[in-house]
Design a protein around this nucleic acid. Sequence first.
DNA 1: CTGTATCCCGCTAGATACTG
DNA 2: CAGTATCTAGCGGGATACAG
Lengths: 125, 125
Amino acid sequence: MTLSDIDFPTPSKGDDCRMVREILDLVGDKWSLYIIATLKDGPVRFNELRRRIDGISQRMLTITLRGLERDGLVKRTLFPTIPPRVDYELTEVGRTLLAPVMGLVTWAYASQENIQDARVRYDAS
Amino acid sequence: MTLSDIDFPTPSKGDDCRMVREILDLVGDKWSLYIIATLKDGPVRFNELRRRIDGISQRMLTITLRGLERDGLVKRTLFPTIPPRVDYELTEVGRTLLAPVMGLVTWAYASQENIQDARVRYDAS
DNA sequence: CTGTATCCCGCTAGATACTG
DNA sequence: CAGTATCTAGCGGGATACAG
């Protein structure tokens, strides 16, 4: 299939649209993207994730990780040591998300100035 | 620059990180992605957008479009006819967002079943 | 047709305290 | 260390009415 096959709410494709919507919402929530990007190089422990993702609370990190785990994008590995240790890493499916996600991140990074300037211009008028 | 240059909260790159965060938040809000995807083939009028984007309210369409306009991603053209007509289209910068965004959409479309299955499996346990 | 203005509900997510 | 539980404020966003 090609991009032009995706046309948002086509009456006949209602179900497809809802699913795509739902999945994009997952990716579009506040933290999923950052977690996925932070896991790009391999397993990371819980508190290491917390440190690397600026501003995330413990609660939101847990909740978001559970969601990603439920969707089969992230794998959780518990080492029953004392103190316990938990590694999170992308699954195979999760890694397929990496390319599009990093595409966005790269775009955001490259477009910073463009957007800043546009905002200044807009706010001036 | 390469992907490996982007490492989220590097102490020395605090400002960069905040900007990337801010821009991803923009893209990650509830509606921006759909508007951008819907504008991929050219100008679309206000109410046509509303019809094509399932579930968006008039209020949120206006607000989201203003945001995209402010960031220089969408161009607004008013035809002062009666009744008035307003076309929205992607700017050149906006079109550069299209590739990464459609990458995500394509991924979401292709991964529907994978994710559905993962959820069923997770919820069963 | 293309908005703006207001009201208001519900959920998101931060803060805090506690546990194995 | 890696969570869970609870409480709550803020705000995103829907509904509705109105305007140019």
